[in-house]
Design a protein around this nucleic acid. Structure first.
Lengths: 140, 140
DNA sequence: TATTGTTATACTCTATAACTATA
DNA sequence: TATAGTTATAGAGTATAACAATA
């Protein structure tokens, strides 16, 4: 599959990571619907952290058009999960923050996604440590 | 973020893998549009391999409804990338195969996704080997 | 004049329910 | 009667272009 790679090891590692991503892509809809969310809404909630975030920055992090964020936020806001507030410094900007309900739902989402890592218990403790160390360096 | 985990190492490794998946989710649309594909079409092309695949099995692998696969395949077929054929054993079943054009596009997609693994060169050769070994066991 | 976010529009993705053909 | 795939329908995700408010 990896034709004439400069670095076969790196190429295979990348393929395996992509395979993991596609498997996550397949499993996210079911997980999301448990919380009555869509995959895109999960992605947004995963990104929005403690500090409020401008809409435009959110579009950048999601790598999608700003008009798309408008619609996503419309639906989350209509459910009382997020809140738009005009920025004090630049009144064109609207910053997004989680409501208390939104924070609870986000916490539930994170907990649901990270609880009981399905297959990781197959790995030895040493391999688990190695995986953490390597992924940290990779995602830094 | 990982509240009262039984296994902190496994939990953190899982979080890092999920973070990687979300970053891939953000970068896939741009990569896909280079080949005039959607992310969902990339997912389907990534799954369909050398041997023809029944539509229903494809729905299972994509974790989506069969009616959704109908639409996805309609669009791919109208571009001459895939082909429906009735199964000989069970005439209700339609198996999907890549056309020569589809095979070329799939190869281009895989090549584009796996070429120049962006940040993997940060890792030492030993860490690259360890990552391959660990992910293989994980995704088995 | 440039930028942030919204609106209008169009198309794709996705699920549900009803349907057809086959088993 | 049950199953594989399609069709009809509706809603969500997505981008492009035009627009309003602000810088």
């Amino acid at each position: 599959m990896c034709a004439r790679p400069r670095n076969p090891q790196a190429c295979e590692a990348w393929q395996l990571l992509l395979q993991f991503s596609f498997s996550q892509r397949a499993s996210l809809p079911a997980l999301a619907s448990e919380l009555e969310l869509s995959p895109a809404q999960c992605h947004l909630l995963n990104l929005i952290a403690d500090q409020p975030m401008p809409m435009g920055q959110l579009a950048g992090s999601l790598s999608c058009d700003a008009s798309n964020v408008t619609g996503l936020v419309d639906r989350l806001e209509s459910r009382g999960l997020v809140q738009r507030s005009p920025s004090a410094e630049d009144r064109r900007v609207k910053v997004l923050s989680l409501t208390p309900t939104g924070e609870r739902l986000r916490a539930a989402l994170i907990a649901r996604m990270t609880s009981e890592p399905p297959t990781l218990t197959r790995l030895s403790p040493a391999d688990q440590r190695a995986l953490v160390r390597i992924l940290r360096r990779l995602l830094d």
